[in-house]
C-alpha cells in the first residue's frame, strides 16, 4: 500500500504504534490549522461532503466540542451521538453499533468509550476512519498530541525535554498517550503519584518513577498534572482528596522551590485545590488554555490527514480504476 496517500493509515487508535516521524507530521500539520481558527471565516472546505459521527459513550463536553469545532472548521457534516440518548443504553452491543455505522456509510467515526480497546475493536470492523477520543485507560491520542504541540510551542522543542506526568497514571489514557508520544519525540518522561495509582511495570515503558511531587518539580522542565477523579478516593486508592492535595498537589509554594521555571499543563477538567492550586492553574507558567486552543488545531490535522486515507480509493484513482 502506498503510504503517501495516508500518512497515518486508516485510523488513529493510539500513539503507541505511530512512529516519531508520523507524530511530527501531525504536529507540523497542526501549525497551519491553528491559523484557520483566527480567521474571520473559520472554515476551509477540505472535508466538504464528509460525514463524521462523534460517538460518545462517556460524557465529555470538552473533547467532543473540540472535535466538533475541528470537524466544522473543515466543513464536514457532523452528527453527535451521546450514549445516554442512543440505542447503546438500550443494550445494543458495540458490534451492532459498528454495523449500523457501516450501513449508514459514515466516513469517519470519533469515539469515546469506557472500555480499553474499544477504538481498536471498532476500527477493525468498519471501513470508516476511526479516531480514538479516549478508550478506557488505554489511550487518548489527540490529547497526547495537543499536549506535545503545546509543549513544543512554548519550549521550542520536545527532544531532550524532561516532562513529568503527575497524578493518577494507572487509570489514565492521557498518561499513556503522553508517555508513548513524548518518548518517541525524544523527551525524557517521568511519572509521579502515589504508588496505588501507578500501574505495574510502568518503569518498563522507559519512564522514571518518582514518588514525591517535590522530586518531580526538582527534575522536570514540564509538569503535566492529571485530574484526580473523585471515584479514586471512593475506591480507596487515596484516603482523602485533602491529603492528596497536601502531598501531591502542585502549589505555588512548591513551584517556588523549582530550580527553573516549569511549564504547567493540565488536560482538564481541573479539580482546583486537589491536584492543582488555582494560583498555579491561572499563573504565568500555565498553558492550560493554550492546550484547549491547540486541541482544535491538532484534531483538524488528524482529521485532514486521515481524510485522504482511503488507500484503495487513492490507488484506484491513480491507476485509472484498476485495483
Amino acid at each position: 500500500m502506498n503510504q503517501m496517500t495516508s500518512p497515518l493509515g486508516k485510523d488513529l487508535v493510539g500513539l503507541e504504534r505511530l512512529s516519531g516521524q508520523q507524530i511530527r507530521a501531525i504536529l507540523d500539520t497542526a501549525e497551519p490549522f491553528k491559523e484557520i481558527s483566527e480567521r474571520r471565516i473559520k472554515k476551509v472546505p477540505v472535508l466538504r461532503g464528509k460525514t463524521i459521527v462523534n460517538l460518545f459513550f462517556e460524557a465529555s463536553t470538552r473533547t467532543r466540542v473540540s472535535f466538533e469545532f475541528a470537524e466544522k472548521r473543515l466543513s464536514a457534516d457532523t452528527v453527535n451521538i451521546a450514549a445516554a440518548s442512543s440505542s447503546v443504553s438500550k443494550g445494543e452491543t458495540l458490534v451492532d453499533t459498528a454495523r449500523n455505522l457501516e450501513a449508514m456509510r459514515i466516513d469517519m467515526v470519533v469515539m469515546r468509550h469506557g472500555s480499553s480497546g474499544a477504538a481498536r475493536f471498532l476500527a477493525d470492523r468498519i471501513p470508516s476512519n476511526v479516531i480514538n477520543a479516549g478508550d478506557g485507560w488505554h489511550e487518548h491520542p489527540t490529547q497526547g498530541l495537543l499536549d506535545m504541540l503545546t509543549i513544543r510551542d512554548h519550549m521550542g522543542r520536545l527532544d531532550g525535554l524532561k516532562v513529568c506526568i503527575v497524578g493518577d497514571i494507572r487509570h489514565s489514557r492521557v498518561a499513556r498517550s503522553n508517555i508513548y508520544g513524548l518518548l518517541k519525540m525524544g523527551a525524557e518522561v517521568a511519572v509521579c503519584g502515589p504508588q496505588t495509582l501507578l500501574p505495574q511495570g510502568i518503569g518498563d515503558l522507559g519512564v522514571h518513577v518518582l514518588s514525591r511531587v517535590e522530586d518531580a518539580i526538582q527534575w522536570a522542565d514540564v509538569l503535566n498534572v492529571l485530574r484526580l477523579q473523585l471515584e479514586r478516593m471512593q475506591a480507596g486508592y487515596v484516603p482523602s482528596l485533602r491529603e492528596y492535595n497536601r502531598i501531591w498537589g502542585v502549589s505555588t509554594a512548591r513551584l517556588e522551590r523549582a530550580p527553573r521555571d516549569l511549564l504547567i499543563l493540565h488536560p482538564g477538567p481541573m479539580n482546583r485545590g486537589v491536584e492543582i492550586d488555582s494560583d498555579v492553574a491561572d499563573g504565568p507558567h500555565s498553558v492550560i488554555l493554550n492546550q484547549v486552543t491547540n486541541g482544535v488545531a491538532v484534531r483538524m490535522a488528524v482529521l485532514y490527514l486521515l481524510a485522504g486515507g482511503q488507500p484503495e480509493k487513492a490507488e484506484a484513482a491513480k491507476q485509472g480504476g484498476e485495483a
Partner: peptide
C-alpha cells in the same frame, strides 16, 4: 490552496501545508 483542492482523495493529504 492545499485545503481548497478538489482532489484530496485522489492524491491524499499533503502533510506539509504552506502558509497563507
Amino acid at each position: 490552496i492545499t485545503l481548497y483542492r478538489d482532489d484530496l482523495e485522489a492524491i491524499g493529504p499533503r502533510p506539509v501545508i504552506g502558509e497563507t
